[in-house]
């Protein structure tokens, strides 16, 4: 079985082709992506992002088919992101999926974006039943599987961790190319001083808006030296790098802590990190140290699968398709709010 996957819930447009053969690992035929990059100091707006997706979706699908040598008649179903995500970009990709479904006469499968990330991570890493930390620009969730659903044990109570990083990058005018989080990671490697930032963990939940407010005001003070230059408690000048370092160390420690708490709670020693923030190597390293202390291991993937992509939608969609799931044309809507635990996971036994 072959599925075409279309993903466009945020600023990445992803197209993927995947092949499932019973009893064998999934075969990736094509996995390509085009990212809408906004200028430094600005985020991506829904209207512009949707426009980007509309203009790129046809060339990307054509390229995926051509590169992989897949013929249209070999495709079994068309999978698209039903949600969660930004409304306008989701709609533009859903329209593309519906058009292809009618044009080629193929069934549609609507996919939950978060479930896509989890299933792709499991497939690539071979993690069997891990606690999942899903961290991206729009989502921060600690998830574990129980009774046919991915249950959310902990999550961000306000903004997502990636959103916190992205917005801090805007304040500091750090470029959005290739990704603000990546650029923060590079700067943080040269950070020396750890500044005190709030640390807000509530059980298995956490909160980032207060940290963002504090680090943003420090960044403003750093840029303007108003009312006075920003110094460490020992009197040395604070640099951009120090701020990136402090922010990363604080928020990642929080993420590792809530993940560890969920692991202790469900009694698991495996952890899988997915989502765009999951390709941060410092986060992977910290998670690895934690898992080792618990006698377990960490599973993570690289940017091809961590960052939003079409292949994960194709993969999760095809798993559901294999269990007989179809999304009728009149039901092929998309939604900004679509919780991970709403999906009945039929394919796991």
């Amino acid at each position: 079985m072959i599925a075409l996957g279309l993903e466009g819930s945020a600023n990445k447009l992803g197209v993927g082709l995947i092949k499932h053969t019973p009893g064998q690992p999934a075969e990736i035929l094509s996995n390509i992506r085009h990212t809408f990059v906004s200028p430094p100091g600005e985020g991506f707006l829904p209207k512009d992002t949707a426009k980007h997706h509309r203009s790129w979706v046809v060339p990307l699908i054509k390229r995926a088919l051509k590169e992989s040598g897949t013929r249209v008649q070999d495709i079994d179903c068309i999978c698209y992101t039903k949600g969660p995500g930004m409304g306008a970009p989701l709609q533009s990709v859903a329209i593309a999926a519906r058009t292809l479904s009618l044009l080629w006469g193929k069934p549609l499968v609507g996919v939950n974006h978060c479930v896509g990330h989890i299933e792709m991570g499991r497939e690539i890493t071979g993690a069997d039943n891990p606690v999942v930390l899903y961290v991206s620009g729009g989502n921060t969730q600690v998830i574990a599987y129980a009774e046919q659903r991915y249950r959310i044990f902990g999550e961000a109570l306000d903004i997502a961790v990636g959103n916190c990083l992205d917005r801090f990058a805007r304040t500091l005018h750090i470029p959005n190319d290739p990704a603000p989080g990546y650029n923060i990671e590079q700067l943080a490697k040269r950070g020396q001083h750890l500044l005190d930032l709030p640390y807000t963990v509530k059980g298995m939940d956490c909160s980032f808006s207060g940290i963002l407010a504090v680090v943003d005001s420090l960044a403003t003070q750093l840029l303007t030296s108003h009312p006075k230059p920003l110094l460490t408690p020992s009197g040395e000048p604070v640099t951009k790098e120090d701020l990136c370092f402090s922010l990363q160390e604080t928020v990642f420690a929080m993420l590792v802590e809530i993940t560890e708490r969920a692991m202790a709670h469900v009694g698991s020693s495996q952890v899988l990190v997915v989502g765009g923030v999951g390709c941060n190597e410092r986060l992977q390293e910290m998670m690895g140290l934690m898992a080792a202390q618990r006698g377990g291991s960490v599973f993570a993937t690289d940017e091809r699968f961590c960052i939003d992509n079409g292949i994960m939608i194709a993969h999760a969609g095809l798993l559901a398709y294999g269990e007989g799931e179809r999304t009728p044309l009149e039901g092929s809507t998309c939604t900004q709010r679509f919780r991970t635990d709403e999906v009945l996971v039929r394919w796991r036994k």
């Binding site: 005190d196 640390y199 160390e249 604080t250 420690a253 590792v256 910290m286 998670m287 934690m290 202390q293």
Partner: peptide
């Protein structure tokens, strides 16, 4: 509460 090696020592001691 043992030392958490994943956390920055300053942050770890504070917490």
């Amino acid at each position: 509460r043992p030392r958490k090696t994943y956390r920055h020592p300053t942050l770890d001691a504070r917490l």
